[in-house]
Simulated scan of single mutants.
Amino acid sequence: MCTSITLETKGNNFLARTMDFGFELDARIVYAPRNYQWYSDVANDATHTSKYGFVGAGKKIGHNYFFADGINEHGLAIAELYYPNEAKYHDTVVEGKVNVAPHELIMWILGNLKDINELEKRIDDIRLVSSTIEFLGGTPPLHYIVYDRSGRTVTLESESGELLIKNNEVGVMTNSPDLNWHIQNLNNYIYLQNTPRSNKMFKDTEAHAFGQGSGTQGLPGGYTPPERFVRALFLKESLPEITSAKQGVNSIYHVLGNLDIPKGAVIKADGALDYTQYISVMSVNETAYYIRTYDNPEIKRLSITKDMLETIHEVKEYPLTKEIEFYELG
């Protein structure tokens, strides 16, 4: 599970996501510097060197870091979400291609590309090759949402093995089915509105709403991917005008707070609790990364600065305080 949205405001654009998972990922903010070298789990441990610095939620697994989302120094932002029963990958590498495992794609994109235009030019060079992650018990089925400073959103999906780039004009992504299915499903919800329904006459009797919010009657409230897709889109499209980065971040946390899964609400077949471990926001104009975890609602922020790019030459981790803290007002 997971939900992602993009938001375009006056002066700042954002990509944000919930990270919903069935066991503790123990993610922390990780900064990967320019010239960071990493070794692919496919293509005979081929070496990749990042041209650009980037920051995101990550964790070291073996000799590599695993990034679930992130933003680079040029404001290109990306998040990966689960795509079960749909994602298909190649089993072999091809010489001359950028052969990477699905969980490595974020590192390659953020380390090598400035924007979506460059991604479009390189998309045919990328070959996703199956690679087992032991603690997941297989190759994670993933698709990706990408955003840049132009305000354009695209989704990357690989139903046939080849990586396809799809314009995502609504700026929302959840999980399976594919993006086109979710867009078509919006036809079922054209009655939704954030204004009141008009009163209705039944012969000589006038019926009226019991209270505010009558226009939202029928808004999906469950946690399935189709329900979260519709709810996320309705809520973000209903936001009033936003004129500052602080307002943008605050608004996103209110929207995704409605998609936040508390522990116990969704239990997997194996008994594990699928819950929202963190909500992250990537501010593409500020090149800043915000995160709030399940156990501590305080928002942490790390921005990519000129000084950071020029002086930090090793991967740097920023562990997150897990325990909630209260501020005494007396």
Score class of each variant (00 low, 15 high):
residue 1 M to H: 06
residue 7 L to R: 00
residue 9 T to W: 11
residue 10 K to A: 09
residue 16 A to F: 12
residue 16 A to S: 15
residue 17 R to A: 01
residue 17 R to P: 01
residue 18 T to M: 11
residue 19 M to E: 02
residue 23 F to S: 13
residue 23 F to G: 09
residue 37 Q to L: 05
residue 42 V to F: 07
residue 47 T to A: 14
residue 53 G to H: 05
residue 53 G to N: 06
residue 54 F to Y: 15
residue 55 V to K: 00
residue 55 V to M: 05
residue 56 G to S: 02
residue 66 F to Q: 04
residue 68 A to D: 08
residue 69 D to Q: 04
residue 73 E to N: 01
residue 77 A to E: 08
residue 78 I to C: 03
residue 81 L to A: 06
residue 82 Y to I: 07
residue 83 Y to E: 03
residue 84 P to Q: 06
residue 86 E to F: 13
residue 88 K to Y: 11
residue 90 H to M: 02
residue 91 D to M: 12
residue 92 T to R: 13
residue 92 T to P: 00
residue 92 T to G: 03
residue 92 T to Q: 14
residue 94 V to H: 02
residue 96 G to D: 10
residue 103 H to S: 11
residue 105 L to C: 02
residue 105 L to I: 08
residue 108 W to N: 01
residue 109 I to Q: 01
residue 110 L to K: 00
residue 116 I to H: 01
residue 119 L to G: 04
residue 122 R to N: 04
residue 123 I to N: 01
residue 129 V to A: 08
residue 129 V to N: 08
residue 133 I to L: 15
residue 134 E to Q: 10
residue 142 L to T: 02
residue 144 Y to R: 04
residue 144 Y to W: 15
residue 152 R to T: 14
residue 154 V to T: 04
residue 155 T to E: 09
residue 157 E to Q: 04
residue 163 L to F: 00
residue 169 E to F: 13
residue 170 V to L: 13
residue 173 M to R: 07
residue 174 T to D: 00
residue 176 S to N: 07
residue 178 D to A: 08
residue 181 W to E: 01
residue 186 L to R: 03
residue 187 N to P: 00
residue 189 Y to T: 02
residue 190 I to Y: 12
residue 190 I to F: 12
residue 192 L to K: 00
residue 192 L to S: 05
residue 195 T to R: 14
residue 199 N to S: 15
residue 199 N to E: 14
residue 200 K to Y: 14
residue 202 F to P: 03
residue 203 K to N: 15
residue 204 D to A: 12
residue 204 D to F: 13
residue 205 T to D: 09
residue 208 H to T: 14
residue 215 G to D: 11
residue 216 T to H: 02
residue 220 P to D: 10
residue 222 G to L: 10
residue 226 P to D: 07
residue 228 R to D: 09
residue 229 F to W: 02
residue 231 R to K: 12
residue 235 L to A: 12
residue 240 P to F: 09
residue 241 E to V: 14
residue 241 E to F: 07
residue 242 I to G: 03
residue 248 G to T: 05
residue 248 G to F: 10
residue 248 G to A: 06
residue 249 V to P: 08
residue 250 N to Q: 14
residue 253 Y to H: 14
residue 254 H to L: 03
residue 254 H to V: 03
residue 254 H to K: 12
residue 257 G to F: 00
residue 260 D to Y: 15
residue 261 I to N: 04
residue 267 I to D: 11
residue 267 I to G: 11
residue 267 I to L: 13
residue 269 A to N: 13
residue 269 A to G: 00
residue 269 A to R: 10
residue 270 D to Y: 06
residue 274 D to W: 06
residue 274 D to V: 00
residue 276 T to A: 08
residue 278 Y to N: 13
residue 279 I to L: 00
residue 279 I to P: 00
residue 280 S to P: 04
residue 281 V to F: 08
residue 282 M to V: 01
residue 285 N to I: 07
residue 294 Y to W: 06
residue 295 D to T: 12
residue 295 D to I: 05
residue 296 N to V: 03
residue 302 L to V: 14
residue 302 L to M: 11
residue 302 L to R: 10
residue 303 S to P: 03
residue 304 I to D: 00
residue 305 T to Q: 02
residue 305 T to R: 01
residue 306 K to T: 07
residue 307 D to L: 09
residue 309 L to T: 07
residue 317 E to C: 04
residue 326 F to E: 06
residue 328 E to V: 11
residue 329 L to V: 07
